[in-house]
Each structure stands twice: as C-alpha cells, then as structure tokens.
C-alpha cells in the first residue's frame, strides 16, 4: 500500500542503549528545550486590555443590510434558511403595505427574522445563498451571555441601523464587485 504522506515512521521495539537507559542525556536535552522556551515571547494576548487582530474576512455576528435609501434588502425568500447546515435561521414573511416603500425594498419582507447563535456555525453559506445581498457575516463578536434564550437574535440585533451602517465590503470578493458593475442585470438595478 502506498503511504498517504511521507511523515509516517517505521517503529521498532529495539533495546535501549546504556545512555538511553540512564535517562540523563535525554533529561538534559529536555531541560535545554524548556529553558529555551523560558526566553521566548509568549503567545498570550491580554484580552480585555488588548484585542487580537481579526482576519479581514472574519465571520462573526450577522448583519441584515439596508440599501442606499435605507430600506431593508431582505425579501424573506428563505434561501438562507434552506442553505443553513445548522438550521439556525427561521423567518416569517409578510407583504409590504402601501406607504412602507421606504422601509422595505421589495413587496415581500421578513416580519421576523431569527438566527440562533448557539446553533450557527458561522460557515457563511447564508451569505453565499442570499440573492439580494441582504445578509452578511461581519467581524463583530457574538457576546457571551448566561442564558440560552438571549442567543436567539431577532431583527432588533441583526438589521443594521440606518444611521450606523456596517461596512461589509471586505466580505465581497473581486468577482462580486465585478458582477455588480453589470448594470443591465436586474439584480444590480
């Protein structure tokens, strides 16, 4: 059978030599390793005072985007819920009434939209599935809590505020930005 990697070693049960049996050379070697580590820089980040730098494409707390005019982009199509491998997303759709055009972008919207942050595995498939560029994962941390109920995030926590937009340009790949330039497509109108 061919080896999968070159790292496998052939083990043998041969007798230890005298130097190995008195342990001392091996102990000396080990002791040298540990003393070397004493002078290495520690990997610890003193958390509350200092935060570790996030990766540019960190996948954290979701955001439901609004469009340029401040209307919610989500149309409650349910593709994110279908794509979610952890089944963390639930929503209830509703029809837009007259006079709500500035609130919701299209005729249908999500009356409730909930993500269970304890189920969510932050894979980003919801954002990939979304045809309306409504849901994105951001570099914000989902904060800890004592109860389970508080981890079911509703629209109050997910929809971005009109006056405090959340930048998600880092989550959009080059291909997406290229695609968005094609103005003849209905998606980009």
């Amino acid at each position: 059978m061919q080896a999968l990697t070159q790292r496998s070693k052939i083990v043998s049960d041969k007798k230890m030599t005298f130097l190995e049996r008195i342990y001392l050379p091996a102990i000396l070697g080990g002791v040298m390793i540990t003393i070397k580590h004493m002078f290495k820089r520690s990997a610890t980040v003193r958390y509350p005072e200092k935060e570790r730098e996030f990766s540019e494409i960190y996948r954290g707390h979701h955001v439901l985007k609004r469009d340029d005019k401040g209307a919610e982009r989500c149309t409650a199509c349910g593709l994110c819920a279908v794509s979610c491998p952890a089944e963390a997303i639930t929503m209830v759709a509703a029809e837009r009434n007259k006079g709500e055009e500035n609130l919701y972008r299209e005729e249908k919207y999500a009356a409730t939209y909930e993500i269970n942050m304890l189920r969510c595995i932050f894979c980003g498939l919801c954002e990939e599935a979304c045809p309306k560029e409504a849901i994105f994962l951001t570099d914000r941390i989902v904060v800890t809590d004592y109860g389970r109920d508080s981890f079911i995030y509703g629209k109050d926590k997910l929809v971005e505020p009109v006056d405090a937009r959340i930048d998600v340009s880092k989550r959009q790949t080059k291909e997406v930005l290229e695609f968005k330039k094609l103005k003849q497509l209905t998606h980009n109108k």
Partner: peptide
C-alpha cells in the same frame, strides 16, 4: 509562573 514561561504563556498576572 515558571510553568507559564516554559509553555510560552504569561501565567497569573
């Protein structure tokens, strides 16, 4: 502290 330093940590601080 010694344990921490030998394991590249900082220990109780």
């Amino acid at each position: 502290k010694v344990a921490a330093f030998m394991q590249d940590r900082i220990g109780p601080d």
